[in-house]
Amino acid sequence: MEAASQGLEFCLAEEAHFEQVMSISGDVYGGIDYMPVRYRGWIREPDRRVVLAKKEGRVIALVSVNVVDDGHTAVVEGLRVAPAERGKGVAGLIQRHCLELTKAQFPELELRRCTRSRPLGPEVFVKFQLVCKQEILALCFEAAEILPKLEAAVEQMKASGAGWEEPVVLGADDVRRVFLSPGVVRDVLPGETIVQDWAPYKASRSNLETLLKRDLVWMADSKDEPSVLSLCQAPYSIPMGAGWQRLNIDIFGKQLPGARSQFLAQLRGAIGTLPGPVYCLLYMEPSLWQQMHSFCQRALGLSNDRDFGGQYVLETGI
């Protein structure tokens, strides 16, 4: 009734809606939005529902719900509301509709998770509990210019004898074993959660099978008793400008040498063939942020480009 009173109608997103969705997303995340490359894939995922809100026939909002954790958790992602419609309650209405639709099709849903940035007020924690928090280091650079600095930093750390920990690339079987190890889940993963580019997953076999289908590079400091793990997603185009690529590196663990080494290894592997500008988001344990930032300034000449205010994974019941 409330949606009808505002003249809203809801529908599932389709390929034909792409341009309208892009038109309401132009100011999102300051040019580093993932939606242009995710939308078409999202609407084809069998366990995801992407819902649009229309007003007078035009798309004014979007949200998606991805069902993970063996059908027990709804991850809310990609909320968009047209600038002229913000502050009118549209976000709450479309999320409620999408969750109700998803719950009807996946009756075992018990939890809702979402990921937010910036410091959160006390009103948020009336509804949600905090699963984990990661800090974000945002780095902008030209790939060709940063590669020699990367090589020099790695060589200097190796020569020092104390700063470099050789990362191990994990194959699929290694990933299954390492990420399901009780010690790793308890002591390395933040909130016992794998956070991959803002999407939170519990450490379960079904979730790992989903992630293993993606174009990710998995690393660890050891296959046997790892204290630092990392994931790196293949770079993708963003609306910031011609040639710009976004790169996401998620690091789990609290040990600086392993985190620093894996960051350099992941970055070197990801940008080796890129021709132009890169916007890299590095997610990490909060206690590492200042040291990692200082290292990037000193070794690579890079400073934090913007303050996201952290990455918060939140959870509540459905």
Rank of each mutant, 00 (worst) to 15 (best):
S287K: 14
I32L: 09
R40I: 12
H97N: 13
L247R: 06
C140E: 15
V76G: 03
L99C: 05
I238V: 15
P257R: 11
Q245G: 06
V184N: 01
L264V: 12
E155Q: 14
H97T: 11
G317I: 03
C114P: 00
A162N: 09
G31M: 02
V188A: 13
M157L: 15
A299Y: 07
G243H: 02
D187W: 03
Q233V: 14
Q105A: 14
L229A: 08
K149M: 04
E142T: 13
R40D: 13
A259I: 13
Q255N: 15
K202S: 14
G30A: 05
E14H: 05
S160L: 05
H293S: 14
L12S: 11
V51F: 00
L256T: 05
A242L: 04
Q255D: 14
D70C: 10
Q245S: 13
V37Q: 15
I24M: 07
T316W: 09
Q291I: 01
V188R: 07
P286Q: 09
A265L: 01
M292S: 00
Q245K: 15
T115C: 12
R268Q: 13
A82Y: 01
P36N: 11
M35C: 01
K223Y: 07
K127C: 04
L212D: 12
F179K: 08
D173K: 10
I249G: 08
T316F: 08
E142W: 13
E19K: 10
A13I: 03
R44W: 05
I194R: 12
G121Q: 06
C11T: 15
P182R: 02
L62A: 03
R186M: 09
F295P: 02
G301I: 01
